[in-house]
Simulated scan of single mutants.
Amino acid sequence: MVAQGFVVDLNKPLVFQVGHLGESYQEWVHQPIVSKEGPRFFESDFWEFLTLTKWWVIPIVWLPVVAWFFSKSIRLGHTIPEVAAMVVFGIFIWTLVEYSLHRFVFHIKTKSYWGNTIHYLIHGCHHKHPMDGLRLVFPPAAAAVLSVPFWNLVKFMNTPTTAPGLFAGGLLGYVMYDVTHYYLHHGQPTSEMPKGLKKYHLNHHFRVQTKGFGITSSLWDKVYGTLPPTELEKKSK
């Protein structure tokens, strides 16, 4: 595709190409290519490997960490029901984090070389190739790095005994988010709730990409007025 005189060659590694699109990057990245075959990101096999993650790696890596933080609050004197309540609250907080990251970070407008490049790595690639099954969940190495400031923030805002339980809930919320996100793209739900959630999310990809930022629920879209219009509302405009 030609943008500002630059041709993106889909047969070559993409990451260091997309920055050259400049202001045309936003239009380019939101024109999806619907294929289960993902693009190559890097020339280096090592860096390419780090971008590829099977969905089942997420619960295998992070659920033991969730269990460890859960048990730590118990070891520090809380009962199981108390820690369970902390976990539920942590999951609730995660839903707000999920919405905020998706809306204000993943959908930030960029036009500089490095802005486009970084945006493509963290989320633009998903909108360009929404069915790439190996880049739908967050690589554990990157998630581990990002979890450190989140853990420090939770410790700063809570007591030493409650912080582990709350962090366990937030981390469990993240695991639920990542596996749900994969399922919404590649699963075939048969019951009404997951069917509705899949339709809601694919609507964000293929119809109204500036609305519908919730993944595991539409709660915060309702709170902050970013629900996508219904087909009826769309026809009435």
Rank of each mutant, 00 (worst) to 15 (best):
residue 9 D to E: 14
residue 141 A to R: 13
residue 236 S to Q: 12
residue 197 L to V: 07
residue 21 L to D: 02
residue 101 L to A: 11
residue 187 G to M: 01
residue 231 E to Y: 14
residue 157 M to Y: 06
residue 157 M to T: 14
residue 77 G to L: 06
residue 26 Q to V: 08
residue 93 I to F: 05
residue 200 Y to G: 10
residue 99 Y to T: 04
residue 131 M to C: 07
residue 183 Y to W: 08
residue 49 F to I: 06
residue 59 P to Y: 03
residue 66 V to P: 08
residue 50 L to P: 00
residue 163 A to I: 08
residue 118 I to P: 11
residue 120 Y to L: 03
residue 194 P to K: 08
residue 126 H to N: 11
residue 22 G to E: 10
residue 170 G to E: 01
residue 227 L to V: 07
residue 204 H to D: 02
residue 128 K to N: 06
residue 231 E to I: 13
residue 171 L to V: 00
residue 201 H to D: 14
residue 14 L to N: 05
residue 103 R to M: 10
residue 59 P to N: 02
residue 54 K to G: 08
residue 206 F to V: 09
residue 226 T to C: 03
residue 39 P to M: 08
residue 111 K to F: 12
residue 209 Q to K: 07
residue 90 G to P: 07
residue 75 R to E: 15
residue 16 F to Q: 01
residue 154 V to H: 02
residue 33 I to L: 11
residue 226 T to K: 02
residue 31 Q to V: 00
residue 55 W to Q: 02
residue 27 E to V: 13
residue 181 H to I: 08
residue 127 H to Q: 10
residue 193 M to S: 02
residue 95 T to V: 07
residue 120 Y to V: 03
residue 211 K to P: 00
residue 141 A to T: 11
residue 204 H to L: 07
residue 205 H to E: 01
residue 149 P to S: 10
residue 151 W to I: 08
residue 124 G to H: 10
residue 180 T to E: 05
residue 212 G to W: 03
residue 120 Y to Q: 09
residue 139 P to Y: 01
residue 135 R to N: 15
residue 227 L to R: 02
residue 71 S to P: 00
residue 45 D to T: 09
residue 208 V to C: 03
residue 224 Y to V: 06
residue 162 T to C: 01
residue 130 P to S: 02
residue 47 W to T: 13
residue 126 H to S: 11
residue 3 A to W: 06
residue 168 A to T: 07
residue 7 V to R: 05
residue 110 T to I: 06
residue 219 L to H: 09
residue 129 H to N: 12
residue 104 F to S: 10
residue 98 E to S: 13
residue 173 G to M: 11
residue 135 R to I: 05
residue 97 V to R: 00
residue 66 V to M: 04
residue 170 G to S: 03
residue 150 F to S: 04
residue 182 Y to I: 04
residue 198 K to D: 07
residue 170 G to M: 13
residue 86 M to V: 00
residue 195 K to Q: 15
residue 115 G to K: 09
residue 59 P to G: 06
residue 113 Y to N: 04
residue 121 L to G: 04
residue 92 F to Y: 11
residue 45 D to H: 12
residue 122 I to G: 04
